[in-house]
Amino acid sequence: MSGSKAPPPVTPDGRYIVVRGRLWRRADPSLSEERRAELVAELMHARRAVRDAADDAQKRAARARVHAAKVALGERGPVWWDDGAPDLNRHMARNTPYAAWHASLAGSSEHA
């Protein structure tokens, strides 16, 4: 598809993507493609429910669904890797062990 944006860079270990210099945890790669697609569909549905909520109670319920989908995907909650490495989700890449790798992404729009 022409005009589409390039995907965000992925850390060498595959744990995070980098958006505007910030690390965001990726989905658990052990999920089947079918299960991942189901969870992404639920996440998108829940995000639309947040947008369309008529009151605070509906918005809270929809946000809880967003959170549950992200936990099920592995993007929040317990980490999906088992080597004891810390979770650096939402950290600025420049302040993490990924700093040198991130700095090497010459010309990247993610470079801050």
Rank of each mutant, 00 (worst) to 15 (best):
R76Q: 12
S108R: 08
Y98E: 00
A62G: 05
A54E: 15
A46D: 03
D28Y: 07
G14F: 12
D13V: 01
L105K: 12
V79T: 13
G74N: 07
W81N: 02
R65C: 00
S108H: 13
D83P: 08
Q58I: 03
A93S: 06
L31G: 00
H45P: 00
G3M: 08
H111Y: 06
G77K: 05
R51H: 10
K70T: 02
E38F: 06
R63Y: 04
R25D: 07
G84Q: 04
A49K: 10
A6M: 09
Y16L: 02
A69R: 11
H111W: 07
Y98W: 15
V40Q: 12
K5L: 12
A68S: 14
V50C: 13
A57I: 06
P8G: 01
N95C: 04
Y98M: 01
V66L: 08
V50G: 02
A61M: 08
D83Q: 05
D83I: 01
A69H: 09
H111F: 03
P7K: 15
P29M: 11
P12N: 10
A62F: 10
A72W: 07
Y16A: 02
A103R: 15
S30P: 07
R51E: 12
I17H: 13
A103F: 12
G107S: 06
R35M: 07
Q58H: 03
G84W: 12
